[in-house]
């Protein structure tokens, strides 16, 4: 049963992630990425990470994808989108990665059979969210604060970058106000 679920989710994740790269229209790419996010959330549920599945759906599918679609609609560019002609660079990067992948594949097949969870397995905590919260606010408290700092910096940077030239606008407003009077 677990294998069946894993097969379904893995197949859908693979197909939709290939479609993200292969489709020409960015809107279709973003929508297939949405399907992929939902299936990754399903995979998280089968891995007993319910809180992360909910966060995946809310943050990725709810916030990030909407931001992408918003920018795609705002810029209105779904034409003139062809592939690079840099197949040499792609081959140069992907052939070593594929070889490494094959080595990994042949190596982990033996390792996974050899080591069936020899660790002392504690019983699954019933409340995944509670356990994550305890870990996050005790062991990983400082990285959590750093993450909040990253979000603050990203927010300020995004506002500053996307705003039309700030100095000129203020100068224009100053000159416009006496003119209006």
């Amino acid at each position: 049963m677990a294998h069946l679920f894993f097969g379904y989710f893995a197949g859908m994740i693979t197909i939709t992630s290939i479609l993200v790269v292969a489709l020409r229209n960015p809107v279709y790419s973003a929508l297939s990425l949405l399907i992929m996010f939902f299936h990754v959330a399903g995979l998280f549920i089968t891995l007993h990470a319910e809180f992360l599945a909910a966060v995946q759906v809310i943050v990725y599918a709810g916030a990030i994808l909407v931001l992408y679609l918003f920018v795609v609609m705002l810029l209105n560019v779904n034409r003139d989108d062809r592939y690079h002609s840099q197949w040499r660079v792609v081959a140069f990067v992907c052939v070593p990665l594929s070889i490494e992948f094959l080595v990994l594949l042949s190596g982990t097949m033996g390792a996974a059979n050899r080591q069936p969870a020899s660790l002392p397995v504690e019983p699954h905590t019933a409340d995944n969210t509670l356990a994550i919260g305890r870990t996050l606010f005790s062991t990983y408290l400082f990285p959590f604060e750093v993450a909040s700092l990253i979000l603050l910096v990203a927010m300020i940077g995004a506002i500053f970058l996307a705003k039309r030239d700030i100095g000129e606008n203020e100068a224009k407003d100053v000159t416009r106000v006496p003119g209006a009077q």
Binding site: V20, V21, A30, D81, H84, V93, C94, L97
Partner: peptide, 18 residues
């Protein structure tokens, strides 16, 4: 690997971010 290939072969910046 699919993501790496996408970053390398796509020309649209939005597709690269995806």
């Amino acid at each position: 690997l699919t993501g790496v290939v996408g970053v390398l072969i796509r020309r649209n910046i939005i597709a690269i971010l995806l």
